[in-house]
Amino acid sequence: MDQLTAVWEWFMMESTWRGSGIDPGILVRVYEHMSMSLQAVALAALLVLPIGLYIGHTRRWEFAAISIGNFGRALPSFGILGITFFITTALDVPGILGFWATFTALFLLAIPPILTNTYVGIKGVDADTIEAARGMGMTEREILTRLEIPLAAPLIVAGIRLATVQVVATATLGAVVAWGGLGRYIVDGLARGNDVLLLGGAILVALLAIVTEVAFGVLERIAAPRLTSQKKRVVAGSRSGQLGPAA
């Protein structure tokens, strides 16, 4: 109970939020955490969405999409972070220590869920519907933009959500490679044997992850109210290849 009281008191201190000395405070850490995560996801989406659309529409390179999805599932994210950390230090990449290592790892982690869901979503559009559209004289581009993308939208958005939640969670590990973010509190708490930092950090990280998940759910419902119910069509587990762990 003492510990929880101490954590409570820690949260009540203004310096905890605004920072003091070299500690920038929770607000800055949250900002770091989220801006890093969102940028990594945004870059991955920018790059991968067109590829996913292409593979889903043409059914070419399907094997590559499936392999990347499976690979992403099996690769430990902690290991990816280790590798990107090593490479960035070996190359003497400028910038804050650990920043590019974390960013690259998060970017790589965001790729499989977005790619898989985009490809599966587009591919899953009913073949008869597409044939009927083609029969009515729609061009391939029209089929993609008017038919496939709208119908696959819920799955694509779900893929971006999966990627974001995953990335926000993994960003916590950035602190292990000397970067900031909310993981900082946990890693510092561990290193110093400071349970208050440890618990305070854990609470912040957990809340941020839950808020991200919930916010995305709300966003999805606002963005595509008619379509969200169709998400139910997706099969559980690895059969569809779109849910994948990658720790």
């Binding site: 994210s77 902690f78 916590t172 099969v235 849910l243």
Partner: peptide
Amino acid sequence: PAPKTQSSIGPRVA
């Protein structure tokens, strides 16, 4: 066909 369920479980990666 495999029974259909919701897809909202994200991967737990870290």
